[in-house]
């Protein structure tokens, strides 16, 4: 069923001048699958996510979504193809209410004057956060009044709402405490249950073992290997990441 997987990358390569940030990267992520992307600092993980989300154009290679090859001019182009990203530094506006963040750039309007439909945005937000079990005081709460975990929950809920089956995450829990991380991991697992394909960058191997089905290792832009979580020992994973055999 190669044709229908939500994301397929074929020979993705990215050069920044003389620096090869990504070299011939191949990956497929199936619906309902969580793939973790691991590697040392500067390995090229964020670069890969930025390529899939339209922020960078690949030097070479092909991105295939649901069987159709695509090229993105910019982030909003990728977004219109249903590619959603959750960033570590939360791409949210903290002085706006939760519902506004949920619909940022895609606000709902009503009537002949196309005025903002705040009520409907708030209601849909409430439904969505209830479904994903992200606990917030109210969709009208200002984002700056929420905890880091709640905010990341909102970011994930937003991505889920707009994604057409594929959600990318770049270190979604890097800024969170233990309890909040657990909560966000629950949310990620709920996405999987809903049948989303998730590609998540993580530095935390414990986390990778908790949530991922497969893991891809990058080292200095090179794809060292792709393993099923059930079949890879942590030692081996560390060796692949660092290049040192223990």
């Amino acid at each position: 069923m190669t044709q229908s997987s939500p994301l397929a990358l074929r020979g993705i390569t990215k050069h920044f001048g003389a620096v090869a940030a990504i070299e011939r990267f191949d990956l497929e992520v199936a619906a309902g699958e969580i793939v973790a992307l691991v590697g040392d600092n500067g390995a090229g993980k964020s670069t890969l996510v930025k390529i899939i989300s339209g922020l960078y154009q690949p030097t070479d290679g092909e991105i295939v979504l649901n069987g159709a090859p695509v090229t993105f001019r910019d982030a909003s182009d990728a977004r219109s193809h249903g590619v959603e990203v959750v960033y570590q530094d939360l791409a949210l506006v903290d002085q706006q209410p939760v519902y506004m963040n949920m619909f940022l750039g895609r606000e709902l309007v009503k009537g002949p004057f196309r005025t903002l439909d705040r009520g409907r945005m708030a209601n849909e937000t409430q439904e969505l956060v209830t479904e994903l079990d992200v606990r917030i005081p109210s969709p009208y709460a200002r984002l700056s009044d929420l905890s880091g975990g709640q905010r990341q929950g909102i970011a994930i809920a937003r991505a889920t709402h707009w994604a057409s089956g594929l959600v990318l995450m770049d270190e979604p829990t890097a800024a969170l405490g233990v309890a909040e991380t657990a909560k966000v991991e629950e949310t990620i697992l709920r996405l999987k249950e809903r049948g989303a394909a998730v590609l998540v960058v993580s530095h935390n191997l414990e986390q990778v073992y908790r949530i991922a089905d497969r893991v891809v290792v990058l080292r200095r832009g090179r794809q060292i290997g792709t393993r099923s979580i059930a079949e890879v020992e942590k030692n081996e994973l560390v060796a692949m990441i660092t290049g040192l055999v223990q």
């Binding site: 989300s53 982030a75 506006v93 002085q95 750039g105």
Partner: peptide
Amino acid sequence: RQRRFGAHVLAVGNSPAAAQVTGI
């Protein structure tokens, strides 16, 4: 207050990067 444009103005003022990635 009532148009999408206003919401985008506030988003850009709050965080240009966040506004950018949401396609504004």
